[in-house]
């Protein structure tokens, strides 16, 4: 049985200054909203954050940024956030941009015990600077290293007391790989259920990767509300 937290404050209390954390989500979809809010409240500083994006100015990781808790950000696209731009230009924030597929694979590799791998993404671009290039079958590849974290904060649709997780639609994104790559993985779930309630064949993240869970309700903010008109 896993640790089931009774408050988000308690769920993040072991995260200390200078920790490296992975945070699931693509844009604002599938982010562990309440765990992020609790981190803002905890006021831990000098974090290295690994996440595809960095939230928006007033939500998600943007809140950690605004509160100057992040020293370094590793992600693939950070264009939705003005405070991010300000901190980078002011030299307050270090940023390491990584192609999205490479980022996903670095995290997958980290969680799977693979220290490094070769990928074609970034060959001949600024990303290749300082990286080993090797040719296989006449094509060039870059050596990229796996990533792990002290803590991974993920968001799932349903989770059981064994830590098994199921995600909903495109809210899955980076969450499963991050669950595996965190030394301690904390899952914020929309619904906490009893073991046996999740179909064993349909589990996305087996419980071995998860150390603690907490149930919470999310706002699920939408970045680009796009609809067609009713006929």
């Amino acid at each position: 049985m896993k640790q089931i937290y009774s408050s988000f404050h308690e769920a993040v209390k072991d995260i200390k200054d200078h920790s490296t954390i992975m945070v699931g989500g693509f844009g604002l979809v599938g982010i562990p909203e309440n765990l992020i809010l609790a981190l803002v409240e905890s006021n831990v500083k000098h974090l290295t954050v690994i996440s595809n994006n960095c939230g928006v100015d007033d939500w998600g990781l943007g809140l950690l940024l605004k509160n100057k808790q992040i020293d370094k950000m590793i992600g693939s696209y950070v264009g939705e956030n003005k405070e991010f731009e300000r901190q980078v230009l002011a030299g307050e924030l270090e940023v390491e941009l990584t192609p999205q597929g490479t980022l996903a694979e670095k995290i997958r590799a980290g969680g799977a015990g693979i220290p490094a791998f070769y990928t074609p993404a970034g060959v001949g671009t600024p990303i290749a600077e300082g990286k080993e290039v090797r040719t296989f079958n006449g094509k060039e590849y870059l050596l990229q290293e796996g990533l792990t974290a002290d803590f991974s904060l993920v968001r799932a649709f349903r989770g059981d007391r064994h830590g098994n997780l199921v995600y909903n639609k495109t809210a899955r994104n980076f969450n499963p790989m991050m669950a595996a790559a965190g030394a301690v993985t904390i899952a914020e779930v929309e619904e906490l259920v009893e073991p046996g309630e999740l179909e064993a064949d349909a589990i996305h993240t087996p419980g071995i990767y998860v150390q603690g869970l907490i149930e919470g309700q999310q706002e699920k903010r939408i970045e680009r509300y796009t609809v067609r008109k009713e006929a």
Binding site: G27, N52, I107, N168, K169, M177
Partner: peptide
Amino acid sequence: DPDLINAGKETVTASVGAAYCDSS
């Protein structure tokens, strides 16, 4: 559905017979 977006972060639907997967 706020959990269903495209890579441009716009809300979308899934086509009949669609499949979801993780980023890797």
